[in-house]
Structure formats: structure tokens, C-alpha cells
Amino acid sequence: MKWGVLVFPGSNDDQDALWALSSVHRQEAIPLWHKDPDLRGVDAVVVPGGFSYGDYLRCGAMARFSPVMQSVRAFAAAGGIVLGMCNGFQILCEAGLLPGALVRNRSLTFVCKRVWLRVENDRTALTRCCREGERLQIPIKHGEGCYFADESTLRDLEARGQVLFRYVDAAGEATPEANPNGALRSIAGVMNASGNVFGMMPHPEHAVEAIVGGEDGRKLFQSLIEELEERAARGGGSRRRTTGRAT
């Protein structure tokens, strides 16, 4: 399948995402520069981590005005798969494509470490290769990763299965100690109501090879690949090539 990885000034995990998709998962993966609205017929879009536009004003606040994001908005509205990781998650929230916001870590410090995530819903395009309750070890590295949404939004997210991952300890419990940033209800990742836009603070693209500390992140990319292949086998669906040209 063909993947597009957005590149903003200040993105710094775009190459890791391209590597994970192309070298590890053998996918066609191309960078998409933020000034070009052409999505080049990709089947899925990755919004990578980093510090787009220097995190000016708020993390992710400026990136949503990029030409490429207008195309991503249309792509997502048509059902296209979009995955935002770290700054990508922040951008998708700021763009209104995902509910909630990411605020300063409760500790006020930048946190960089491997954490345990518990899969909260395995009936999604991002988690279909996982089991509900399964633990994944994935790194985080952020200063503003504390998930916030108002009470009624949180209730809706949980009732509709839109919470994808929670931070847990090694035993799989969502304790306050296992919560690295103060995220409400220990939420590490969510999806939109339609189930095609995903955001998570942890970095699965940094967990695809044992030599760099683990490969639990592969299951998430593998899930999306299977989803895309299934969609293609069904005849493409409505989301394909809604923007840009097929090449």
C-alpha cells in the first residue's frame, strides 16, 4: 500500500516513520511536504512527531493551517486512514480531527522513556492485530502529552470505544504511578467517532526493531496494513484517491 508521511518545518520523526513503513514493513512510503496540497494518491497518511513550527503558540496550532492539512482534512472526511503520533496527535487535535487536547505534562518535565500501554479496543483499524487487554511496550518522548477533554467528552469516548490505549504498569494496571504525564483517565491514544483517524502520544515507529529496544509497534502498523489491504480487496471504497492524483 502507499503511505504518505507529512513533513512540516520542525518535524523530526518523519524519517523514522518512513523507515518503519518502507524498510521494516515493505510498504511504499513517501514524504509529503507541508506546502504541497497534493496527497499523491496515498492510501494512508501519517502525521509524524517533532516540533512543527517550533511549537509556537501551542503544540500543533500552526501546522493545521498548512496547505497539506486542508487535503488531509478532506481525505479523513472521506474515510481515509490518518495516524498521528506525538506532535501528529497534537496537530490532529488542534485541527479538530480528534477530540480533546494535549497539555503540559503534570511533572512539568520532558519525559523520554519506554512505557507500557494497554490495548483498550481491538476492534479498530489500528489495533486489529492486538488483543484487548494486551500490553505493548512503546517509547514516549514529550513535554506536552497530558491528554485533556471535558467530562462529557471523556464519557462519550469511553462509551463508544474510542479510547485506544491507556498507560499501565507492568502488571497491566492503570495506576497513577504508571501515568507518565498526568493524562486524564491515563489515556495514551484515541480515535475519532468514524474510526479512521487515530492519535497517540507514544511512538510505535520507534518500536519496530529489536535492535533498538523492541518491536511491539509493528503490530499497529501491521493492523493498518491489513485494514488497507482488506479495503483494497473490497474494491477501494470511497476514500481512495479523493484528493490528489494517483501515480
Partner: peptide
């Protein structure tokens, strides 16, 4: 300003 109910760790530290 941060909304009431939104954690403001910076304010707390100050």
C-alpha cells in the same frame, strides 16, 4: 488562561 478544571502544573509550581 487555562480553563477551570484544566490542570495547570506551572501555576501550581509557582
Amino acid at each position: 488562561t487555562p480553563k477551570r478544571g484544566v490542570l495547570d502544573p506551572q501555576g501550581k509550581a509557582v
